[in-house]
Amino acid sequence: MHIPDGFLSIPVATSTYVISGSWVGYSIKRVREEAGEKAIPTMGVLAAFIFAAQMINFPVAGGTSGHLVGGTLIAILFGPYVASIIISTILIAQSLLFADGGITALGANILNMGIIAPIVGFVIYRALRKWHFKASIFIASWVSIVLSAAACALELSLSGTIPINVSLPAMVSVHALIGIGEGLITLFVILAIEKFNPDLIVNAKLHTNNAR
């Protein structure tokens, strides 16, 4: 889903940069207030953890494998602000260290994967968790992936690169499948985390002391 350089028009590239920049800037302010001095070391190792988890291939079901994106996972555990900052930083690192995702498309990539995905995932999880805890996690991660793919398709068509009647069905159908993997992995990881430390799931904050 990483958009490379050259696929976006100037208005789309610049406007997504402005939106992403403002949201990430606001998130940084919020997190600084909440977590204070601990923000750097705690989020730093979390970012390294998610970056690493994205590089590991999981067996999902029926012999297929997938990897974690992690936006919804972090959003469920620590809230959408922390998730936005961590995923955005990972996207910057990937665009440099793997040349994965374009420099000029960074705004759009952050918007899709680092902002839309965690916010959507967080909101759906919060809305549904009282109804059914496990289903809410799966649905939240699945929808977050599908919606960010849809946003990606929309940006490509607004740029005049790929018409919407081609990009939207293609992106959404592929990511409806990828989303199942993301949903299952997020669900299983959250369940495992809950088993070892139920407190962490209840307070979505940077309470690092709970790790002990």
Binding site: K38, I40, T42, V45, A53, F58, A192, T208, A211
Partner: peptide, 30 residues
């Protein structure tokens, strides 16, 4: 080969390990 459940235990273990490491690095920075 490990199953999805085992993989998720491994991931969550590494998650808690990361949180603990964050706490220790914070001390070492302090």
């Amino acid at each position: 080969q490990p199953t999805l459940t085992l993989w998720s235990y491994m991931i969550s273990r590494s998650f808690f390990g990361s949180l603990e490491r964050g706490e220790q690095i914070f001390q070492s920075m302090k």
